[in-house]
Design a protein around this nucleic acid. Structure first.
Length: 840
DNA sequence: CTAGGGTTAG
């Protein structure tokens, strides 16, 4: 039996017994290094490596190679670069395996130049993997041409591409430019059988169709024909559907995936949670949340971001507590997770202060914001109307170089526009080097809202000149601008461009067209658009109902409301304002009550101030002033000025000075600086000839420096808007206009018109009064319309305030005397006046 | 040596 070796041989050699420690030390360290690499403790491994190198000993090439691969796999590129550095310092002769790893490292970290230089130095030692890695590198760095060139070069050098090369080459064809090359390669992979045998090739093909051509149909076909799929393939399809706006399809594919027995992972859940956020499917989102919990992914940053977004968009209670909870569970925050929470706050509405606090918190923790962050934060400043903070935030963006990124600059433009600083908005727009469609739309919308249709239209032309292609948003802004001024000529022009652009079936554009035609006085065309629509939503129905109600066709409005209910469309708050005002216009007290009572009971719409005002109008107009007062007193909240103004209007119609005075006081109490209330009270006194009281009110107004909004009327002739004030003589054709007025005056008096001096609110001589009446802006506009518009067309006049009662009567006579149709839009409604009669 | 992620302005 062999005896045991003497114990001394097992002794670890001491430094003193071994003069060359480096011979012993490295093996020991290399093993430790390998263990650290395999355990994924890469930072510790780097220290070990550095320590070894410092002692003049390098691990072997296999260990270096292992280290590199591990760095690539864990996407620790900066560590990978350190390993490369140490490798260069060693005397090791690099083999192709290591060099291939280095190409891959630089390919993935975006340093394609370095990868290329390694590739070029390799010369004859290149193998199939080297070529594949290089093709892949160019493809990853969006250099399709170079990738395909290398691919062909490889074939010419006698290599047969394998599945790796093919998937890289296919990825290189993911731009429209290389679509036909892609088709050839597609044919090639089918012939060689790689399509059937490799899932990565299939994934490449899916992206070739999606990214290169936006062709989701072909992509899905490829997906369905793949003989073999795994969780990554499923997730890719789900993600692409989601990213290209097909959230519903994404969810369908996900359900299929689950039914087919595949396990979703963080990527899958992220995509589907985003889809449920987009479609506002809270219960699906919640189910996915519990899936995430089941898979232990609640702390995952990526899933967390999607959940934050989903709860911000979908939670019904209006609170951000769910999103906030998720946010604080994430431990390793980065820009994206901070931004997701900031954006959630901003989109939810009402949390702009919290968003700004979070932005500050992010800066304090030294996380650098990106363009998304700035965009949302600026929006928060815009919501708070805080230009000072907004400009500070923007200055920060300038410092970090994000100020020229579109979404940041566009947020700045929007902030200025929404704060009424249209000139600053324009300046920010003008200095923006590369404007995109949203930049244009933002400024166009601002101009449309401030009734500057000239500028809006000019920018719209610029969009078309640059071949940018206006979007539904552009048209909707332009149309609402045209609607506010009532320029039907402009509106029709825009309609023509809508048709030319191929967007004529777009729902929001059609809705905007309905309101444009309706507000420009052409209810027939509005109805035409409505009837031609394939797909109507609650806004389409509400727009046309509002149109008919405002034009005095209440029966038609109510009929359409019933049709809407039959069509299964749920009415909203605005629908009920239209319905109730229709009832009030035709004096349908009972029907009004019926709708008011059923709006909440049957359709869950809680009446708000406007609805109460409509009811007050219904009751007041029918003469039940005391019932109206009772109704006001029974309201669940304090009646505001709108309600009292409505009531005051009824008091005026029914000549009830006492209740009217009470109403006026209530208005002035709530809006002490609104001149309109004083004017109403003054009118009430004037109509009962209490001139002393009228003078008193004027005096108070003067003391408070309240200036009544000047009444003005306008009419559009050949796309140009002509605006008139009372007694206006500034128009170039003023002489002709006044001749026409004179002429009309004598003509209608013969037909029986008697001027009603109640509407002259000055205490002046009767003859003088008549002259005032004839110089009201609406009458001047009508006269100008008569001499400028061809006889076959109706005259459409617009007034910023309510039409004067005497003018209303006079215009009825004018329509009789001239045989013309005159449509007047005042602050409240449309008057279709024809053959001496008004639609009201 | 190959395939899938999150946040964005009107």
């Amino acid at each position: 039996m062999q005896s045991l070796p003497p114990p001394t041989t097992l002794k670890i050699p001491s430094l003193s017994s071994n003069p060359s420690p480096s011979l012993q030390f490295p093996t020991f360290s290399t093993n430790r290094l390998i263990r650290q690499i395999n355990d994924g403790r890469l930072r510790t491994a780097i220290s070990t490596l550095e320590h070894m190198v410092q002692h003049g000993s390098h691990p072997d090439l296999q260990t270096y190679s292992l280290f590199l691969k591990r760095c690539i796999r864990t996407r620790s590129f900066d560590l990978g670069r350190l390993v490369h550095e140490k490798l260069t310092q060693s005397d090791l002769q690099l083999d192709s395996v290591t060099l291939n790893s280095l190409i891959s490292l630089y390919s993935k970290s975006g340093q394609w130049e370095k990868a290329k230089s390694i590739f070029e130095h390799m010369g004859n030692s290149r193998d199939l993997i080297t070529w594949s890695a290089m093709v892949s590198c160019f493809a990853n760095n969006k250099m399709g041409f170079e990738a395909l060139h290398t691919f062909l070069d490889m074939i010419q050098n006698g290599y047969y591409p394998n599945e790796y090369c093919f998937s890289a080459a296919i990825r290189a064809c993911s731009t429209a430019e290389f679509a036909s090359v892609g088709d050839s390669i597609f044919g090639y992979v089918i012939k060689t059988g790689y399509f059937a045998s490799d899932v990565c090739v299939g994934c490449g093909l899916i992206d070739m169709f999606v990214k290169g051509r936006g062709d989701l149909v072909s992509a899905f076909e490829v997906f369905e024909k793949m003989p073999e799929r795994n969780a990554v393939t499923w997730t890719l399809m789900i993600t692409r559907f989601m990213q290209f706006g097909y959230a519903g399809e994404a969810i369908d594919v996900f359900l299929d995936m689950i039914l087919s027995g595949y396990e979703p992972d963080r990527f899958t859940l992220s995509a589907v949670i985003s889809a449920s956020a987009k479609l506002e499917l809270l219960s699906l989102g919640q189910q996915l949340h519990s899936q995430a919990i089941k898979h232990g992914l609640t702390l995952d940053r990526c899933v967390g971001c999607c959940l934050i977004n989903m709860y911000a968009k979908c939670s019904v209670d209006g609170s951000m507590s769910e999103s906030r909870k998720i946010f604080y569970q994430i431990l390793d925050h980065n820009v994206i997770s901070w931004t997701a929470m900031i954006t959630g706050y901003v989109q939810k509405g009402g949390y702009d202060k919290e968003a700004l606090d979070l932005f500050r918190g992010m800066i304090l923790t030294h996380v650098l914001p990106n363009h998304f962050t700035f965009s949302s934060t600026l929006k928060a400043c815009a919501n708070l109307a805080d230009l000072r903070i907004g400009e500070q935030v923007f200055a920060h963006a300038v410092k970090l170089g994000f100020s020229i990124v579109n979404c940041v600059a566009n947020s700045l433009i929007s902030m200025y526009a929404r704060s009424g600083k249209i000139d600053d908005a324009r300046k920010a727009f003008d200095i923006l080097f590369e404007k995109n469609l949203i930049s244009y739309n933002t400024v166009i919308d601002a101009y449309s809202k401030t009734l500057n249709s000239e500028e809006a239209f000019e920018l719209f032309n610029e969009i078309e000149d640059q071949g940018m292609g206006a979007s539904a948003f552009t048209f909707a802004s332009l149309l609402s601008g045209a609607a506010s001024i009532g320029t039907i000529g402009k509106g029709e022009q825009i309609h023509a461009r809508v048709i030319k652009s191929g967007l004529k079936s777009n729902q929001s554009i059609c809705n905007a067209l309905i309101s444009m035609y309706s507000k420009c006085g052409d209810i027939d065309s509005a109805f035409q658009v409505f009837e031609d629509m394939d797909d109507r939503n609650v806004i389409s129905w509400t727009s046309i109902i509002t149109g008919f109600a405002k034009h005095g066709f209440a029966t038609k409005a109510l009929e359409l409301f019933h049709k809407m209910l039959e069509a299964g469309i749920r009415p909203n708050e605005v629908s009920y304002i239209a319905v109730l005002s229709a009832c009030s216009h035709v004096g349908l007290v009972n029907e009004g009550w019926k709708h008011f009572k059923s709006m909440y009971a049957e359709h869950g719409v809680t009446p708000r101030m406007e609805h109460y005002a409509c009811m007050v109008d219904i009751l007041g107009r029918s003469g039940s002033l005391s019932e109206a007062i009772q109704f006001i007193n029974s309201m669940p909240f304090k009646a505001d000025a709108l309600v009292w103004r409505t009531f005051l209007g009824a008091c005026r119609v029914h000549d009830n000075l006492e209740l009217g005075k009470h109403a006026a006081k209530m208005i002035i109490e709530q809006e002490p600086h609104d001149p309109a209330a004083y004017i109403l009270l003054s009118n009430l006194y004037a109509s009962t000839s209490q001139w002393e009281e009228v003078a008193n009110i004027r005096k108070v107004m003067k003391q408070k420096n309240l200036i009544k909004e000047a009444g003005c009327s306008w009419v559009e002739i050949e796309n140009k808007v002509h605006k008139f004030y009372v007694g206006d003589t500034s128009h170039s054709k003023a002489e002709e206009i006044y001749d026409e007025l004179e002429h009309l005056s004598s003509k209608i008096k013969k037909l029986g018109y008697v001027p009603n001096m109640d509407f002259v609110l000055h205490d002046v001589e009767e003859e003088q009064k008549e002259k005032y009446l004839f110089q009201h802006s609406e009458r001047i506009a009508v006269a100008f319309g008569l001499i400028s518009i061809s006889k076959s067309k109706p005259i459409r006049v617009f007034k910023n305030l309510r039409i004067c009662g005497d003018c209303h009567a006079a215009i009825k006579y004018i329509s009789l005397a001239t045989g013309r149709e005159i449509i007047v839009r005042d602050a409240n409604r449309f008057h279709h006046i024809k053959d001496g009669r008004c639609s009201w």
